[in-house]
Design a protein around this nucleic acid. Structure first.
Lengths: 168, 168
DNA sequence: TATTGTTATACTCTATAACTATA
DNA sequence: TATAGTTATAGAGTATAACAATA
C-alpha cells in the first residue's frame, strides 16, 4: 500500500519531498519558458540553449563541443543544427584544425534573436522562480544548484561502455 | 555582442546564473531518472508521475484531476492513460458522480511496479542531487522549492482565455 | 451552453544503426 | 582502429481540432 514504514531505508521523506517539489517546479517552469520561446522566437528550449552557448563562443564550436552537456545523441544535434542553419541562425563549416570536425557559429541574425528573446525569457523565469524568493534565498539557491550542477557534470554518464545492452 | 552592460534592466547576473544552473542540473537529473525508469520499469517519467499520483488517491481520479499539474493536453493524457491501461497498470471506468467523467484507478500491478521502481529511482536522485548537499542545504532547498512550487501552482496558466491565437 | 473525454491527425523530437571520411 | 559527423528510419510524445455525450 506504499506505506512509508514498510519501505526500505534510503527513502528519507524529506529528501523525497524536496526532490518532488524540485521536479514539479522545474517542469512547470520549463513548460512556461518553452511557450514563451516558441511564441516569441519560434525556438525550443534546446535550440535556445544551443544559440546562447554559441553566442559565448567567439570562434564557434565543433558539433561535439556543442553537444556536450546538452546530453542527447549525435544525430539529435545534427537535426537541431540543421534546423538552426535552415533558419539562418547558425552556419556550419569545416574546421581548419580537424578535417573531420564541423564548426558551428552563430550568425548576426542568431545573435539578434537571442538578444530579442532573452529579456522576456528572464522575465518569465523571474515571475515564476524568483518572485517568492528573498535575496538570501536566491544566493543560497544559486550556491546549491551550482554545486549540484558541477557534481552532475562530473558524474560519469552512468555507463561509459554498456555497448548495446544484452537482450536476454 | 550580448554585452551584459548593454542589456536592459531585469537581467540580474546572479539570477541568470542561478536560473541556468537550476535548469541544467534538473535537465541532467531528468535524463538520468528517465533512463532508470525506462530500464527498470519501462516507464516514462510522466507515466511514473501519473502512477504515483494515483497510488495516493484511494478512490481513483478523474482524467481532469489526474491531468491537473501535469500540464499537458487532454489528448496527451488520454494517450498516456491508454498506454498504462494496456499495460495493466491502471483501470478506467465511468464515474458514479458524473456520467461524463472517467475514473482512473491504479491496479495491484501498478502499485507493485511503483514499489519496485521507487527505491532505485530515489537512489539515482540521491546520488546526483543530494550527494553534494549538507543537511542544512537539503532543508533549505526543500523549503525554497516548496515555496516556488506553490507559487507556480497558484499562477494563472498565463492565459486563461487565449482561445486560438489570432494568426495575423 | 459548458464541460468531460476520445479520436484522428500532423508534427516535433529523440535514438539506433549503418555509413563516410579523416586521424 | 578510433573519432566526427551525417543519414535513414522508426518510435514516443504532444498538440489541435472535430466530435460525442452528459451537466
Amino acid at each position: 500500500m506504499t506505506n512509508p514504514d514498510t519501505r526500505g531505508p534510503g527513502l528519507d521523506p524529506q529528501q523525497l519531498g524536496t526532490y518532488f517539489a524540485l521536479m514539479e517546479a522545474v517542469s512547470l517552469l520549463q513548460h512556461r519558458v518553452e511557450q514563451h520561446l516558441r511564441a516569441e522566437g519560434d525556438l525550443s528550449y534546446v535550440q535556445f540553449q544551443l544559440l546562447t552557448r554559441l553566442a559565448e563562443a567567439p570562434g564557434g564550436l565543433t558539433m561535439t563541443e556543442l553537444a556536450d552537456g546538452v546530453v542527447y545523441s549525435r544525430s539529435g544535434l545534427t537535426y537541431q543544427a540543421g534546423l538552426l542553419e535552415k533558419a539562418g541562425l547558425v552556419t556550419r563549416g569545416p574546421s581548419p584544425d580537424d578535417e573531420r570536425a564541423t564548426l558551428v557559429a552563430i550568425t548576426a541574425d542568431g545573435r539578434a534573436l537571442v538578444d530579442r528573446v532573452l529579456p522576456g525569457h528572464v522575465d518569465v523565469a523571474r515571475g515564476l522562480l524568483f518572485d517568492p524568493l528573498s535575496g538570501d534565498d536566491l544566493r543560497r539557491l544559486g550556491d546549491i544548484m551550482t554545486r549540484v550542477r558541477d557534481h552532475m557534470r562530473a558524474q560519469p554518464p552512468r555507463s561509459a561502455a554498456p555497448r548495446t545492452r544484452r537482450e536476454r
